[in-house]
Simulated scan of single mutants.
Amino acid sequence: MTLAQLGPRICIIGPSNSGKSTLAAAISQQQSLPLTHLDQLYHQPHSNWVPRPTYEFLALHDAAIEADRWIMEGNYSVSMPQRLDRATGIIVMEVSTALSLARYLRRCLFEPGHIGSLEGAQDSIKWSMIKHLLIATPKNRKRYQQLYQDWNGPKVLLNGARDLQAIYKEWGLTHPTQST
């Protein structure tokens, strides 16, 4: 599958800390697609990752998906149906729980201002996120796999870090280094 075949509205979904934000930023730069990190819509800026009221998140989300062209990364099942209805292609990412956890710890300890980070927020190790990675993520993986199976449009499955590296090379993507 070529990147162009995914069309002008691409959703990237997958486990936390799987590389969604970085891949979305790389595609955004190469294709000049407006980029939306759903974490930034869901959480209040300049907070310690405090969620917005659901109605506010949904209003921001629904406004973003109305555009003709975009790349959007993140999950948030409350908004998934309307996002997928507008998407022209999807990328489903898969990484092991161990790798997700290692990336989360690295991000919190060594990568302030990482791609997709929340404006004005300081990442810190949170038990709730570790619990999410260890308990909720395996269940979510099954949902993402089913979503991939059921999707009738153009789609790409990246099953691990090697697939992710290969797609960067295949699509000629440059790994972004600064926060977007």
Rank of each mutant, 00 (worst) to 15 (best):
G153H: 08
L158P: 00
L3S: 09
M72D: 02
P81R: 02
L58I: 14
L99W: 09
V50I: 15
S18R: 02
S79Q: 10
A121P: 06
I90V: 14
A166Q: 13
T2V: 04
P154R: 00
A25S: 15
Y55D: 11
R9Q: 11
L38I: 13
S96V: 03
I10F: 07
Y55L: 08
K20V: 01
C108T: 04
A59V: 00
R83M: 05
P154M: 00
M93E: 04
S100H: 03
H175D: 04
L33D: 07
S16F: 03
H114T: 10
K20D: 03
S16E: 05
N159S: 13
P138W: 02
S21Q: 08
K142I: 15
N159F: 07
A98M: 03
I167Y: 13
S47G: 05
M93V: 03
I90Y: 02
T22Q: 08
R52D: 01
R106M: 12
A25K: 10
H37G: 13
E66N: 12
I167K: 01
E73L: 03
A25Q: 14
W127K: 08
Y55R: 04
I135R: 06
V78C: 11
L33N: 02
Y148K: 05
W171K: 06
I125L: 09
K131I: 01
H43D: 07
L173K: 09
K142V: 15
S96H: 08
L38Q: 12
S79H: 09
G14S: 05
T174W: 01
T22F: 05
S128P: 02
A25G: 04
L6H: 11
K131A: 05
G113R: 01
P53M: 06
N75I: 13
A87V: 04
T2Y: 05
V95A: 09
K126F: 00
W151M: 14
S128M: 10
N75Q: 04
R52E: 07
I115M: 02
D68P: 11
I71W: 10
Q29A: 15
